[in-house]
Design a protein around this nucleic acid. Sequence first.
DNA 1: ATAGGTGCAAAGTCTTTGCGCTTAA
DNA 2: TTAAGCGCAAAGACTTTGCACCTAT
Lengths: 130, 130
Amino acid sequence: MAYSKQRELILKTVLNNRIHPTADTVFSLLKPDHPELSLATVYRNLNQLAKQGLLLKIPVPNGADHFDGTLEAHYHMICEQCSQMVDVPKEYVPEFDSQIAEKTGCAIHSHTIVFYGLCESCNRTPHASC
Amino acid sequence: MAYSKQRELILKTVLNNRIHPTADTVFSLLKPDHPELSLATVYRNLNQLAKQGLLLKIPVPNGADHFDGTLEAHYHMICEQCSQMVDVPKEYVPEFDSQIAEKTGCAIHSHTIVFYGLCESCNRTPHASC
DNA sequence: ATAGGTGCAAAGTCTTTGCGCTTAA
DNA sequence: TTAAGCGCAAAGACTTTGCACCTAT
């Protein structure tokens, strides 16, 4: 993988922010200081970094994919008000996969859990813009 | 909700098939016998039926929404080969929500678990078209 | 030199929506 | 008759891709 300034910036943006940004969020954060940057480049690099295992790509039903610098498998929560994604303090349970595989004859490779609700700040101030 | 022939057909299609069809699948199943049917009508009715609680809408990361005639909360598995969705024999665990809510100060309303792997038939015959 | 990366704009997938016509109640 | 529903085509959100140019190695 040949070095590129853009990829470095994109990776840094995901790692240095505890938010789980979408491609568009990364783009918006970088665009002001890097006006030549293209959204396509952001998508390409986020996908590539995820493929290399440097980031986690978290696809979200009915919404843009989020990217996460935390590499260990874990679960997420999406705020129904501000669409922000946060990590959930629940230990990952790899045994779920084998339990299902055993019962069904399917080959289970992984699973995701997504919680829906209001994030801490939206829960406190329901009408804030977050 | 005023009766319509189209809605009846769409609902029947979801209920009578144990597959969890997408809007497009429903459309394809009905189109041959109902050439005038519009995909927009299928989307509108599936969403409406889900809102009325007659169906479950199952949004899927990076894929089309599936619709399910089984109303009790339950979990799903998506086949990575044929994209078919199947129910998973794992009891729904509503306590997950309150556990997370308690630990975080978020208001958790619901959660979904999606398993990824190969469905039974794809697992047996890896190269079949399903 | 050349494989890989970039920006741009076009295309692709899934879904919703505006509008004029039709139909159930 | 009138609110609800339909078909069609356009638009919207998110993402990928083709292409000509640029850059790290």
